[in-house]
Design a protein around this nucleic acid. Structure first.
Lengths: 234, 234
DNA sequence: CGCAGCGTTGATACGATTCAAGGGAGGTGG
DNA sequence: CCACCTCCCTTGAATCGTATCAACGCTGCG
């Protein structure tokens, strides 16, 4: 087993303001795990034994309804914490997390979270800031779902993903992990059929390029116009 | 100006675990304010000078979109904190808060929040628990809006309000503040017309009784069935 | 008394889901 | 290397839930 080094995490937002000694103490307690594509990092309703930091890859956080429908809560990028049930005063995970590509994560026992938070106030504050940001994201999403039409919501979702993981290519900004029509539907509360129709329409207008589990945004600016509803239908 | 006494707040959730001395120190810094019906406690985008505790009344928290639509984020009941922008790492209020009846609130300068949180760890933890709960509420709402039809969302909204402020009357559980069709529409992302139709239909079935800015749930259990979608249309 | 605010109800329109069918690409095993 | 099979995507047609448009009634307050 390779020794974990503080340089792995030093530059990441959750650890901002921690000094090298503190980083060493935290990483000394971490286990590194590989999660292969389509496997769960943690499962909704299960006992929250650990919290996690994503080092590499992408993870989809989903909530499953009693009747089996899945709603995607967010995508996690490298450097983000996940499964921080303890920071929310829970003993159980409120959602499931699935690796969308092969991933590397660090895991700490949940019980350790409050120790870290009090021993390293910056870490606690950083985590709470994360929770605060996610609350604002969630509220923004509620507003979107209450006031926008499906096409605007899909456009917003794509732009959000591009901001999170956009990779410049010669065609435009590629979303850097496999993303199906169904996945987009689960982010926006619609069906894969509607997403498919929207994407083909946008492709004809040159806004995006897309294929099997792959979406490239060609004209972010025009897509944003559409997302903001500032376009008159032609 | 009447002296504020710690007994005002001692029994309220945000102050759980604080001893009398601590309560005195907190309340010593508070100002009590009366907010008359339909007036704002604070405004979206404004500088977050203070955070608040609702002592009496009810407050509606709303987000306004660029094009003027209003979405109700939540209703605040007595004993809840609001405007805790500092706990979210913000310097500005993310929403507006409007008194739906005449209210009494306590206000503290925002800057004092972090002082209190570190001086009285229980207070900090309680606040963060509140933020965590609101995050979960918001996610639950996203799931609802993604998977449920309007009638189920309206039913859920009414049940939530009944749980928060239901007052037993001889007809059933009355929601204890003025609540119009439009208000319900803003909570559920629909229109006042649709809400009106639903309520008259439910009234015919004996599920609710309602009038001008007034809703009474007569049969919470049957309404819950409907909210959970376990009813076959007759 | 009159008006403003809230509520109701019909008719119509439309966005999006649902139902249905088929095509294509990529991976796997023979 | 080819055949097959699975998973993903597309596209048409029918349907339905809800918004929109429109008009009117009621009620309580100033």
């Amino acid at each position: 087993m390779s020794r974990l080094d503080r340089s792995l995490i030093a530059h990441m937002a959750p650890f901002e303001g921690l000094n090298p000694t503190e980083l060493d103490r935290m990483i000394g307690q971490a286990r590194a795990l590989r999660i292969t594509k389509d496997h769960a990092v943690f499962d909704q309703e299960q006992d929250a034994h650990s919290f996690f930091l994503l080092l590499d890859g992408y993870v989809r956080v989903i909530k499953t309804t009693p009747d089996g429908e899945e709603v995607t809560v967010r995508y996690i990028s490298p450097g983000e914490l996940m499964g921080i049930a303890s920071a929310l005063g829970r003993t159980t995970y409120p959602a499931s997390a699935i690796a969308v590509v092969d991933c590397v994560v660090l895991a700490w026992p949940s019980g350790m979270w409050s120790e870290f938070a009090s021993a390293f106030p910056n870490f606690g504050a950083n985590t709470y800031r994360t929770v605060g940001n996610r609350l604002q994201d969630a509220h923004a999403r509620v507003v979107e779902m209450s006031t926008e039409q499906v096409d605007q919501r899909v456009a917003h979702a794509l732009l959000k993903l591009v901001r999170q993981s956009g990779k410049r290519t010669d065609e435009g900004l590629l979303i850097d992990f496999p993303l199906s029509r169904q996945d987009i539907a689960e982010m926006t509360g619609t069906t894969l059929h509607t997403v498919s129709r929207l994407l083909t329409a946008w492709e004809e207008q040159g806004l995006v390029r897309s294929g099997r589990q792959k979406v490239t945004v060609v004209e972010p600016h025009r897509l944003l116009m559409l997302a903001e509803g500032r376009t008159e239908k032609t």
